[in-house]
Simulated assay, not measured.
Amino acid sequence: MQLGTRWTSGEKPPAAVPVALHAQIAAVERLLPADQLAHQPTPRWTLTWLEGRPVAELDTGVIVSLDADGQAVVRKDDEDEFA
């Protein structure tokens, strides 16, 4: 069993977050609008595991996960990942 975790965007991901996701997580965080964040709580990431693969979801709906080839993929939660 693999347990998930939560952390605040802008912080170093916890050790439970696979290194394969770190670059894409950082890329997503660089795109967060600073002026919007000043007026709202800082979004947090949630790491879960789906069929043995890590899935990191930001409160904004952005998801970073690994595809079948082990490559990090970024999508929004309203997009079909199989499209």
Rank of each mutant, 00 (worst) to 15 (best):
R75G: 13
L58Q: 07
A34T: 14
A27I: 00
A56M: 03
V62Q: 04
A15V: 07
V28Y: 05
A72P: 13
D35R: 11
A34P: 15
V74E: 11
T8A: 09
L47K: 04
A72V: 08
V73R: 14
V28N: 05
L3Q: 14
R6Y: 02
W49R: 04
T5K: 01
R6L: 07
K76M: 13
D67R: 04
L66H: 06
D35W: 05
P54H: 03
V28T: 13
M1R: 02
V55S: 02
I25T: 11
D35S: 12
G10D: 05
I63Y: 01
D69Q: 13
Q71N: 15
E79Y: 08
V74I: 14
R53C: 03
S9M: 10
D59I: 02
V62A: 06
L31C: 13
T48H: 04
E79V: 08
D35N: 09
W7M: 06
T60E: 04
P54W: 08
A68N: 10
H22S: 11
A23N: 11
R75Y: 12
V73A: 03
D59K: 01
P18S: 09
L32M: 13
Q40W: 01
T42E: 05
W49P: 03
V73N: 01
S65Q: 12
Q2G: 01
D67L: 06
F82D: 15
L21R: 10
G52I: 03
D35L: 02
L50N: 09
P14F: 12
A34W: 12
A34V: 15
G61K: 05
Q40I: 01
R53K: 15
F82K: 12
L3I: 07
Q40K: 06
T42I: 05
G52A: 09
P54R: 02
K76A: 09
W45V: 05
E29W: 06
R44T: 06
Q2Y: 09
R30P: 00
D80V: 08
E29D: 08
G4H: 04
T46Q: 15
A15M: 04
V64E: 10
Q24W: 04
